[in-house]
Nucleic acid binder design. Structure first.
Length: 634
RNA sequence: GCUGGUGUAGCUCAGCGGCAGAGCAGCUGAUUCGUAAUCAGCAGGUCGCGGGUUCAAAUCCCGCCAUCAGCUCCA
């Protein structure tokens, strides 16, 4: 007999060798129906797994992330089976579950088209109907290699050969289809009730551009049809928030064929940008920063000295002036070094916090460009902080607080990553070690949870990155804190210490928004274009009901304009419903509808974005509240 | 950069070898109206760019550019 402890603490006894599926059956019919995999002593296993010893058991359903992954992993096997049925000779790459679904990589002479996806889905439906059980089988390395060699599955053979010696090799079999797979899987193809293939894409074998590009098919699957439909609906909704679409609809910004990766800001987008910059300046003044501006084009010698010419050249635009080589700055730091060195510094001056809204240009791969999120010219809200080594932790903590202040104002969820020394790096290992420790120390003292990104640091130092999400869940690096022991050396930065001797200061590069452009992209998606009043390009629209009310409407609009409110008057000869509809589509926060009633007693009928008609209020009261709302950035 | 898709009016899209189309937006006129679209008329095009095939190309073929998805990259 074996004793099984369930999640609720109850203990049940069974014949040794009972399967987890049978235990689920014993617990309840409903659970057995929804059970996908089991979790025995913290490892996830198939329902067919036979329990031979006492242990803690959980029966997992689609609600559990491990079960969801197994479910989608099985879905990817069904996809592979369907593809091999329809396109014999197709070789298999890998086919894992991912955050919102699954994919499988194929090497096929046939190039898959979107039309093929429908055919493949049909065949997948057949496989689901066939209700094929998935059978797990453990075999020796030699047998496995022989099996896949005979099938011509060269990628699988490569995978097996690269597995550590002591790893058991398992196969999963469903009908005539066999795949190398660690599992676990759901018990039968019939469990996959709702799935959809979503897209096609190229993907390099094992993620290296040196390898062959395979064809990847993405899909998703759910336990219930309704959940799938809801997911697809959510994706459609999220696409409506895409900043590229909203940027065009709301006339905020655009990227044109004439300037790939070089964004244009229209008057309305410029309002948002200027408001953000005003806020930035106000905040940085309070936090003890000074502001500088450094040139966009600087000599080749400078970039050679900073190391960019050797480590960053493929991303830099260059030009020739009077037969001399120049480069357009991809970063602001060398300019800041020159400013630092234009004067003598005392330890008493530290920390020196030198901010710059600096326009940088970087040559990004054409395929990497993405609206405002990934561009070739952008404005970093940069700052360089010069300090004593003893000030590192407190300065880094200060920047963490500053970034958090900004993100909290917008209600962003973010996560933090610590990136360590990359392969192509300047400086010694010890330098890197000290710098990385200093950053980690600050994170620990702030009690922040963070993810470590090995080898993802900048070439000159380790960094802390702040990542924000876009409308469809992709994350983008925005704020960053980078410790740099290289540039102070290269530019021979010094300060005079207490002892009257010259010493080397420590420097941190940091951004909060990251890039103003990217930040505006994220903001646009975050608010779905309905910006808070302080950022809204147009804050109030005054809508007279007929021409008769236009003079009163104009008086209000003029008064608001004088109070620095961004106001527009819509005195076109249109019905009120039409004007409201337009203002609503423009996502203007406040509409003031004025007719005979309002004109008589100096009131306005307020319509608030998202909340509809708020009734009639005294104009002066409205104005006072509005100005208060703008000032407090709510 | 790589793989695949897409590019037609300001916007959204139809047309896919035989006269360049629709809706919205724009302009003109009428309508003077109370909370998401009043009616009528007019105008609007190097069909991404270049080459080729054809009696004839938006449509087929080749090259390039841009863009979308993913991969790679991401300071």
């Amino acid at each position: 007999m074996v004793k099984v402890t369930l999640k609720d603490g109850s203990v049940r006894e069974y014949q040794a060798g009972i399967s987890i599926g049978e235990i689920a059956e014993d617990i309840s019919k409903g659970l057995a129906r929804n059970a996908l995999v089991g979790k025995l002593n913290n490892s996830v296993v198939d329902l067919a797994y036979k329990v031979e010893e006492d242990g803690a058991l959980e029966i997992l359903t689609f609600e559990d992330v491990e079960a969801k992954n197994a479910f989608r992993h099985t879905s990817s096997h069904i996809l592979a089976q369907a593809v091999q049925r329809l396109f014999p000779g197709t070789k298999l790459g890998i086919g894992p579950a991912i955050a919102d679904g699954f994919y499988y990589d194929f090497d096929s002479e046939h190039t898959f088209t979107p039309d093929d996806l429908a055919k493949i889905e049909k065949e997948m439906e057949n496989i689901v109907k066939e209700d094929l059980p998935l059978e797990r089988q453990e075999i020796s390395r030699e047998e496995a290699i022989k099996l896949f060699e005979d099938k011509g599955e060269k990628y699988k053979v490569e995978l097996i050969q690269d597995l550590p010696e002591d790893t058991p090799i398992t196969l999963y079999k469903q009908g005539d289809f066999v795949d190398l797979c660690a599992g676990p899987h759901v018990s039968s193809t019939g469990k996959i009730k709702a799935f959809k293939l979503l897209s096609l894409a190229g993907a390099y074998w094992r993620g290296s551009e040196k390898n062959k590009m395979l064809q990847r098919i993405y899909g998703t699957s759910f336990a219930k049809k309704a959940e799938l439909d809801e997911y697809l609906f959510r994706i459609e909704e999220a696409k409506k928030r895409d900043h590229r679409k909203l940027g065009q609809e709301l006339k905020l910004f655009a990227i044109m064929d004439e300037g790939p990766g070089f964004p244009f800001f229209f008057p309305k987008g410029m309002v948002i940008r200027n408001e953000l910059e005003n806020y930035w300046r106000e905040l940085h003044r309070k936090w003890g920063y000074q502001e500088v501006k450094t040139p966009i084009i600087l000599t080749r010698q400078l970039w050679e000295r900073s190391g960019h010419w050797y480590h960053y050249k493929e991303n830099m635009y260059t030009t020739v002036i009077d037969e001399e080589d120049f480069a357009i700055k991809p970063m602001n730091c060398p300019g800041a070094m020159l400013i630092y060195n234009s004067d003598l510094h005392s330890y008493r001056d530290f920390p020196i916090r030198m901010g710059e809204l600096g326009l940088v240009h970087r040559h990004e791969l054409s395929g990497a460009l993405h609206g405002l999120m990934r561009v070739r010219s952008f404005t970093q809200d940069d700052a360089h902080i010069f300090m004593l080594p003893s000030q590192i932790t407190s300065e880094v903590k200060g920047v963490i607080d500053l970034v958090d202040t900004i993100y909290r104002l917008f209600g962003f969820q973010y996560h933090v990553e610590l990136s360590t020394k990359p392969e192509k790096a300047m400086g010694s290992d010890e330098m890197w070690e000290i710098a990385t420790q200093a950053l980690e120390q600050a994170l620990k003292e702030k009690g922040m949870s963070y993810k470590i990104n090995p080898g993802d640091g900048a070439f000159y130092g380790p960094k802390i990155d702040f990542h924000l999400r876009d409308s469809i869940g992709r994350t983008w690096q925005c704020g960053t804190i980078q410790l740099d022991f290289q540039l102070p050396e290269k530019f021979d930065l010094t300060y005079v210490g207490e002892d009257g001797q010259k010493h080397r200061p420590v420097m941190v590069h940091r951004t909060a928004f990251g890039s103003i452009e990217r930040f505006i992209g994220i903001l646009t998606e975050h608010y779905a274009g309905a910006f808070p009043t302080w950022l809204a390009p147009v804050q109030v629209k005054v809508l007279p009901i007929t021409e008769r009310h236009a003079p009163y409407a104009k008086k209000l609009a003029d008064d608001l304009f004088k109070a620095n409110v961004r106001v527009e008057l819509d005195d076109r000869n249109e019905k009120i419903g039409y004007k409201i509809r337009e203002a609503q589509l423009e996502k203007v926060p406040y509409m003031l509808v004025v007719g005979d009633k309002e004109m008589g007693n100096n009131t306005v009928a307020v319509r608030k974005r998202g909340q509809g008609d708020q009734g009639t209020v005294d104009y002066e009261t409205f104005k006072k509240d509005l100005i208060q709302e703008i000032a407090t950035k709510v």
